[in-house]
Amino acid sequence: MKFTKFATTCALALGVMSSTALAETTLKLATVAPLSSPWGQWAQGVAKKIEEESGGEMKIEVIGDAQLGDEQTILRQGMKGRVDLVLVSNIPLSLIGQEMDLVSSPFLYDSVEQGSCVAFNHLSEILGPSLREARLEPLTWMEVGNYIVFSKDEARTPSALEGRKVRVAATTADELFARKIGAVGVPMGTSDTIPALQTGNVEAAFLPGVFGIAIGTHKVAPNVTVSNHTRLIGTVAVSQRSYNKLSDQEKEWLSAFTEGGAALSAAVLGAEGALLGKLEGAGLPVARLSDEESAEWRASADGLREELAEQLGPKAVSILEQINAAKVACGS
């Protein structure tokens, strides 16, 4: 009898342990961002918050440093449900639909504040349907930062790049802008940029400030122009295949990514200013533009958004109208 009671007690204990193990949900988040970068640190911070708030019932495993491939590969894996969450920049979003390139239009916003307002208060409503068609559920919009110019020779104005080969991202918006300013846009990945500058295949590069400085672009193209001509916004999204398996409580825990998006934006934009200050402190030529020079950059993109939307089709035209309405709602 005593043995039977003991066996029953053990079985119950094992059952409790088994149900506890089954109750734990672990999701994998993939990104190319280094774990030590602002994006990697932010993702790990949100993962820690979720684990704490859930009492260990939900865990997010952050897999960074491009361990699961480049951004296009990671995005495809998310769309197919092979990874649970993706943290990607705007560059691969055209895999979902070319209309997504509109969020990379030069001088899309009138101010930093307006851009942040549109991104965090309106963009999920505007671009959410496209993401959901691709079997992704957007959680937040990820700050990538502002495009600046790294060049071998001084390039304070867009006219200074006329006829010169400039590295651009492989997006319709980037390529169109290069043509508008008379530059020869050379689409390439970020890993190819520094070798291309070293060999002379390109003479300048458009890159996000934090990323461009972090990889040392200024060492081969030391003239830095703070053009801030494009605000790059990516996404953190969860695979619908994974999302549909979650309980309401688990979805609520996952909303920590949504709530934390603005903090990441502030961190990235703050890092931009700090890194540019370090370059100046080291004696590198960092061009802070005058009002006249800034006006020339902005004028170079006149009509580009409308031309891009028309080129990309009716869906893009509708999205641009929604973005413009969101800008009005946010104010300047």
Rank of each mutant, 00 (worst) to 15 (best):
G163C: 09
G209N: 03
I194V: 08
N121S: 07
G163T: 08
M188G: 03
V118S: 01
A178S: 04
A204D: 06
A178C: 04
W141Q: 12
S151L: 10
E175H: 03
L108K: 10
R156F: 11
A155H: 03
L93T: 11
H122G: 02
W141Y: 15
A183W: 08
V186L: 06
N90R: 13
S124N: 13
Y147K: 05
P106A: 05
L176Q: 06
E162Y: 05
G200F: 08
T190L: 12
L123W: 15
S159M: 14
L131P: 00
V149T: 11
R135H: 08
F206I: 04
V144S: 06
T157M: 15
A160R: 07
A160D: 14
I181H: 00
M142K: 13
P187E: 12
P106E: 12
H122K: 10
Y147W: 13
L95C: 03
V118K: 00
C117S: 11
L176I: 02
K180D: 15
Y147A: 11
T193M: 10
V168N: 03
E133Y: 07
F150H: 03
V112A: 07
H122W: 10
Q114A: 02
M100E: 13
G182A: 15
A169Q: 03
L176R: 05
N146W: 14
L102K: 08
A170N: 12
F177W: 10
T140F: 07
A204F: 07
P129I: 13
S105Q: 04
E125M: 10
M142L: 12
C117W: 09
S105D: 00
G185S: 09
A183K: 10
E125C: 00
M100C: 10
